[in-house]
């Protein structure tokens, strides 16, 4: 085998890889940015927040450094989102960057307190309005684990 043959093989492989990459990318299921995965007992359910009936969420949240931020978005109360789910006491909210926050199931019972809103670029964001330090302000929520 000569170097010339090797270069031809490399060029052919690049062409084949390009064609395959196009085929593979076309076959990939498109994931909505506002999608959240709800996990309970090994079962996973995908929910697209953007396709649900959302309400206006307007609130002022205080951060740990004392600064206040205004929330004016659309969202859904977590208790409404999880209305069909039973037999859990804690909810772990996981973000894309592996940050996570925990909620007790009892906390959901308080009216107009725990929301999943559409944050930046329509990505899901957890807001607990009663928190004084916004530690459970989770941006880019990926999944909700019910235990």
């Amino acid at each position: 085998m000569k170097k010339k043959t090797l270069i031809i093989i490399l060029a052919a492989l690049v062409v084949i890889a390009t064609v395959l990459a196009i085929i593979v990318s076309k076959n990939q299921p498109s994931k909505s940015v506002s999608e959240v995965i709800i996990m309970q007992g090994g079962k996973e359910t995908k929910v697209d927040l953007g396709k649900l009936q959302l309400t206006d969420v307007k609130a002022t949240v205080t951060r740990a450094n004392g600064k206040t931020i205004e929330i004016d978005s659309k969202g859904i109360e977590l208790k409404d989102l999880l209305a069909e789910y039973r037999g859990f006491t804690t909810i772990t909210v996981n973000a894309e960057d592996n940050y996570s926050a925990e909620l007790k199931a009892d906390e959901l019972q308080t009216e107009k307190n725990v929301y999943l809103i559409l944050g930046e670029e329509n990505k899901p964001r957890l807001m607990v309005l009663s928190d004084s330090n916004a530690k459970r302000d989770v941006k880019n929520v990926l999944s909700l684990e019910l235990k």
Binding site: L6, L10, L13, A17, L20, N27
Partner: peptide, 16 residues
């Protein structure tokens, strides 16, 4: 399928 073929192609190209 195509994903495995692409995986092998990329491995081969980077190998070369």
């Amino acid at each position: 399928g195509p994903v495995l073929a692409l995986y092998c192609c990329v491995a081969c190209i980077s190998g070369i």
